[in-house]
Every structure is written in C-alpha cells, then in structure tokens.
C-alpha cells in the first residue's frame, strides 16, 4: 500500500476520485506521486495538460520550443489572447499553476532531439506524445522502447484522430513472441514518409475541437495506466471520425522483424537513426 499523505484540502479537491472504488485515496496518491512528460503544448497537449493537472498528476513536464500564435487559439486551449508571443511552455505552466497548486510543473523550452531525449524523458514515468512531426514521433517511440518507458500516442488530421498506447513492457513481449504481442509505433508504421508526402494541419486545417477529444483520450489512458486500472489501448489503434461521430478500434500486433522492438533489433540506440526524412537507420 502506498504511503497516504493526502491532506484535508486534497481530500476535498480530489473527493470525486477518492470516493470511487477503482481509485480511492491510494489511487489518488499514486497520481500525486506520478510524473508525466507531455511533448507538445499545442492542440493535443492542451487538453492533456489540463486533465492531467486537474487529476493531480504530481509532476508534469512540458516540452515545446514554440511561441503562441493567434491562429493557435482556435484549439490550443491552455493559451489565451494575452499569451500571444509568449513561449508555449510558459503559458501552459502558468495555466497548470493556476489550476492546481499541487502540481510541480516543469517547462522545457526546447526541441526534443536524439542528443537530449534521454535527459528529458528518463526523468518521467510516462510520455504523452502530442507532437506534430514524424521525427519526434519516431524518436520518442525508439527511446521509449529502448528504455521501457510507457508512451501515449495521438495524432489528428482534419476531422480524424488516432490514439494508441504502448506500455513498452518488453519482458512480457519477448516471453511470448509468437502470440499476440503488442506493437510499437514502428511496428505499425515502419518508416516515416518522406517530407511533404503526408499533409499536416497547417496546410489542410483541423476542426478545433478535434484535438480536444483526442488529447482527452490520451490523458484518460495515462491516468488509467498510472492507476493500474482498466484496459489501455495497447495493441489497439483507436480511430475517431468526428464527421461521422464514429469510433473504431483496429487490433495491431507486433512486427517480428521490427527494427527496434523485435528480439534482434537493428536499432540499439537513438544514435543509430537519422531522425529526418524517413527516420531510417543511418547508413554510416
């Protein structure tokens, strides 16, 4: 049993959690003791940051090197009109501090690269990928696989969203390689497309509320994972179509020849990969 340290104010703040059999004071303490790194303080990151902070995830890291633009405000709801021109991590950190003083919020105004990914990620229990580019997605996937760090994945396009979750518990996967082992991101999409071949929100637009839905699902999965309750979307890709208001899950299995999560991986370090273009293993 965890060491319960909830004070009277916390028992009040989190009372709707504490009274639930699935959470209780022990579960709330687990949330307060947990740490999550949110990569991206934009469309997906905004709702994720809000709900993780409100839920009482005790230490919240936020990575982004961008500043708030007015065109962000249609969907990036931790930022306000007065924040235009400010670093997103500062604006998001101010939001968290105002929402919940329990949270130790750690803004990292930087871009994640192969050189700094370990320093950033290894300080946290879970990573929530709210980035918008394949270089970051493949870098986070590879590093989290190699270090056994849980990773929440979300992506959006116009009216569509995709969400999945990778616990990266490799021991269970290796022990049962011929059965229904769950995949990593590279199992599903082995290589990134060449730049410019897949459109992004900046060129095609995005329904403003869409990242709210997808980011909230990502936050839900992270909270469940921390609590150790329910079934996370491991081995399932959730596809959301806002236009038809449909949700569909597709079962996806590990690729036995995956370059990063198979038993005999080609990628043993993020230094092996050029995180640009198709994010393949470096030729040199």
């Amino acid at each position: 049993m965890s060491d319960l340290r909830l004070d009277a104010t916390q028992l009040d703040r989190y009372s709707r959690h504490v009274i639930m059999d699935e959470i209780g004071p022990e579960g709330q303490q687990r949330l307060l003791d947990a740490s999550v790194l949110v990569v991206g303080a934009g469309g997906l990151g905004s709702p994720a940051i809000q709900y993780l902070a409100a839920a009482g995830v005790g230490r919240l890291g936020i990575v982004d090197d961008d500043v708030v633009e007015r065109s962000n405000l249609q969907r990036q709801i931790v930022h306000g009109d007065d924040d235009v021109g400010r670093p997103k991590v500062e604006s998001a950190a101010d939001y968290v501090t105002a929402l919940n003083p329990d949270i130790d919020v750690e803004p990292h105004e930087t871009r994640i690269t192969a050189a700094n990914v370990a320093d950033l990620v290894d300080e946290y229990d879970v990573v929530l990928d709210a980035s918008d580019n394949f270089a970051t997605r493949y870098l986070l996937n590879d590093h989290c696989v190699l270090t056994g760090t849980a990773l929440s994945h979300g992506a959006i396009y116009r009216f569509e969203g995709q969400v999945t979750f990778f616990t990266n518990e490799r021991s269970s996967k290796a022990a049962d390689e011929d059965a229904d082992a769950p995949p990593c991101y590279r199992c599903i999409f082995p290589e990134a497309p060449e730049p410019g071949t897949v459109p992004d929100c900046a060129t095609t637009g995005v329904l403003g509320v869409l990242p709210g839905t997808v980011g909230c699902i990502q936050a839900t999965e992270v909270v469940k994972y921390i609590l150790g309750k329910g079934e996370v979307l491991e081995g399932r890709l959730l596809m959301y179509d806002a236009m038809d208001m449909t949700f569909e899950t597709v079962d996806v299995l590990a690729n036995p020849s995956c370059p990063v999560c198979s038993d005999d991986p080609e990628i043993e370090s993020v230094e092996d990969v050029a995180y640009e273009g198709s994010c393949q293993i470096s030729a040199d």
């Binding site: 990569v39 991206g40 934009g42 709210a130 918008d132 580019n133 970051t136 870098l139 995709q162 995180y275």
Partner: peptide, 12 residues
C-alpha cells in the same frame, strides 16, 4: 492511414 497532426513545432 498515417497521420501526423498534433502540436506544431513540439520538437524533433
């Protein structure tokens, strides 16, 4: 389908 949208300039 592979989609990439999320948070502009989050890293990488």
């Amino acid at each position: 389908r592979l989609i990439k949208g999320g948070s502009p300039s989050a890293g990488g």
